[in-house]
């Protein structure tokens, strides 16, 4: 479908590959799927890996390439976390779609294999019950239906489903691959990025190409067509190194109140604490004059705190707790008070 207003999509969508062969960096799955385009053989698939690595892109591309635009609607069911996928939907909507026999219509230029595809994107948000309810459907209709499960964490998919699928891990994009994809976009958009800016962009996006493209587009809007590493860093929201260092310095003072003031300041500046702690960890680990035992104690605390943050605990209290434990570790104070 041609978009009505072509320019109104953000670049991440504009540069979403439409064909499997254009998906970068995931050679293994591309090989299997390219093969499918010739032989029409396709196992159930399970894609997993971090955000922005091409999972949804790949699944949608293969489905489009197999059936073409006309048959797509009748042959492909895409359900994602924005759809209700409770046990009821599994028992009705999914089952009904899976059960329909496949018509013999074929469209010239497309392989149109004799099965339908059900794409369950963001499947890690399906409940275990709903996943269990899928087992039977998968088995019963496997002649006429293929399933694609897509998720960030494979551990959230129950074993009986996972074991029926060919599993593919989508790797974070390497620096070279990311750079070449970014270069491609720069050419299309008439942007100028030197090699230093390119490697900065790869570094701050941490293998997430979607993030890299968003940073690139924002930097292009803000700073024009010549983009420097500093421009990219400023749009990315990476926490400046000084902020992390001054937190450590405050802890080294040994004064609780000094550390508390620094923590309050970090919170007022609005820095995301989970990210700050990841950077704090790097600084602690790479500081030479902190003995291993103290490092271990601080790292243990960071691990515990990360879990608390995931549970939704308060950022200020958690960061203060880390700072306080860091002081206690650096000054070899016991973990709990004994009077």
């Amino acid at each position: 479908m041609a978009p009505l207003v072509p320019m109104s999509q953000p670049w991440v969508e504009k540069y979403r590959p439409r064909q499997v062969k254009d998906v970068a960096h995931q050679e293994e799955v591309i090989r299997v799927l390219t093969n499918t385009l010739q032989t029409a053989d396709l196992p159930h698939m399970l894609f997993y890996g971090p955000p922005g690595t091409g999972k949804t892109t790949t699944a949608l591309a293969i489905a489009h390439q197999l059936y073409g635009p006309e048959l797509y609607k009748s042959r492909v069911l895409e359900l994602n976390a924005s759809d209700d996928r409770g046990i009821n939907v599994v028992r009705t909507k999914i089952k009904d779609f899976a059960a329909v026999a496949v018509g013999t219509t074929r469209k010239a230029g497309y392989p149109c294999p004799p099965y339908k595809i059900i794409i369950l994107d963001e499947a890690d948000s399906m409940t275990e019950d709903a996943q269990n309810a899928l087992r039977r459907t998968m088995e019963t209709y496997s002649k006429v239906t293929r399933f694609f499960f897509i998720c960030n964490y494979i551990s959230r998919i129950i074993e009986p489903l996972a074991s029926r699928c060919a599993k593919f891990r989508f790797k974070p994009l390497s620096e070279e691959v990311m750079s070449s994809r970014i270069m491609h976009i720069c050419n299309e958009e008439g942007l100028n990025l030197d090699s230093q800016a390119l490697s900065t962009l790869s570094a701050i996006s941490q293998g997430d190409l979607r993030r890299a493209i968003t940073y690139l587009q924002s930097a292009a809007r803000l700073f024009g067509s010549s983009i420097s590493p500093t421009d990219l860093i400023s749009v990315s929201g990476v926490i400046p190194e000084d902020v992390v260092k001054s937190l450590l310095a405050a802890c080294r003072s040994g004064e609780f109140d000094v550390a508390n003031k620094e923590v309050s300041n970090i919170i007022a500046e609005g820095y995301p604490v989970s990210q700050l702690m990841a950077q704090f960890l790097d600084v602690i680990v790479s500081t030479d004059d902190i003995p291993d035992e103290q490092k271990a104690r601080i790292c243990k605390k960071l691990g515990e705190t990360d879990k608390c943050l995931v549970d939704g605990a308060d950022e200020y209290l958690q960061l203060l707790d880390v700072a306080s434990e860091t002081i206690r570790a650096l000054f070899n104070m016991p973990q709990t008070l004994v009077f």
């Binding site: 609780f256 549970d311 958690q318 707790d321 306080s324």
Partner: peptide, 18 residues
Amino acid sequence: DLKHEICHWAAHYEHKMR
């Protein structure tokens, strides 16, 4: 000394509360 201890427990119970 008590500051360290108390701030730890505040973080602890806020997490539990969540």
